[in-house]
């Protein structure tokens, strides 16, 4: 796979309708030398993986680095993908492993701040915003994100993959490499913990 990524805007005729191709077909094409298939996979997964990895770090820069590392691994190790699992499961598993490796390298201090949609960190407690419905909703989301980050990692990632990403239990089980029964239990427990935290905040 020595193709250059130059001329990113160029698309091969086979990629005229990339949305019709499944992830599995795209990676097969990439393994056979179609660089546009790789670009399409990057487009499909960069934000998803970024959101996923952000739940490990709450640090934009680190999360992007981990996602880049994951996508580079996709570039260099695409031929390792076996058609027995969904591509999404495979790539999420790589991202999770990269994130955990990175976490082990530098233990990230837990922050009380939260990010906004454009990636800037804000301190929710110090923000006194007029509470119209939209802002209330935004604050609720931010609080949700904040409390989600306070959950132990095992519960947090299970809840995130289920309720944000809407993965099936089987997929979550494969990504996190944990039995389905344990996954269900963690999701259930994580949701209850989150609800209790948010309830105490409202009170």
């Amino acid at each position: 796979m020595t193709q250059s990524l130059l001329n990113l805007s160029l698309k091969s005729s086979a990629m005229d309708n990339p949305f019709k191709l499944s992830d599995e077909k795209l990676i097969a094409r990439f393994v056979n030398g179609d660089i546009n298939a790789y670009k399409e996979l990057v487009k499909r997964y960069q934000d998803k993986l970024f959101n996923f990895v952000m739940r490990y770090f709450n640090n934009r820069e680190q999360a992007e680095d981990v996602v880049q590392e994951t996508l580079i691994k996709l570039y260099t190790h695409a031929h390792y993908y076996k058609d027995i699992a969904l591509f999404s499961t495979w790539i999420y598993t790589i991202a999770k492993n990269n994130a955990l490796t990175e976490l082990r390298k530098n233990k990230v201090k837990k922050s009380n701040s939260m990010w906004t949609d454009d990636g800037k960190l804000i301190d929710i407690a110090s923000n006194e915003i007029p509470l119209d419905e939209k802002v209330q909703n935004e604050i609720a989301v931010e609080k949700l994100n904040k409390y989600l980050l306070e959950l132990p990692e095992n519960f947090r990632m299970a809840v995130y993959l289920r309720d944000f990403e809407e993965h099936s239990y089987e997929e979550i089980s494969m990504i996190l490499e944990i039995p389905i029964g344990t996954i269900k239990s963690r999701i259930n427990r994580g949701r209850i913990m989150l609800a209790e935290k948010l309830k105490s905040y409202k009170e």
Binding site: Q46, D117, G119, L144, R191, A195
Partner: peptide
């Protein structure tokens, strides 16, 4: 909460993400 989580707009990577990659 589940409803709220499903409604959350996903974050986007930086504009120069692809360029750096």
């Amino acid at each position: 909460n589940i409803k709220l989580m499903k409604s959350v707009e996903p974050l986007k990577v930086s504009k120069n993400f692809e360029e750096r990659l």
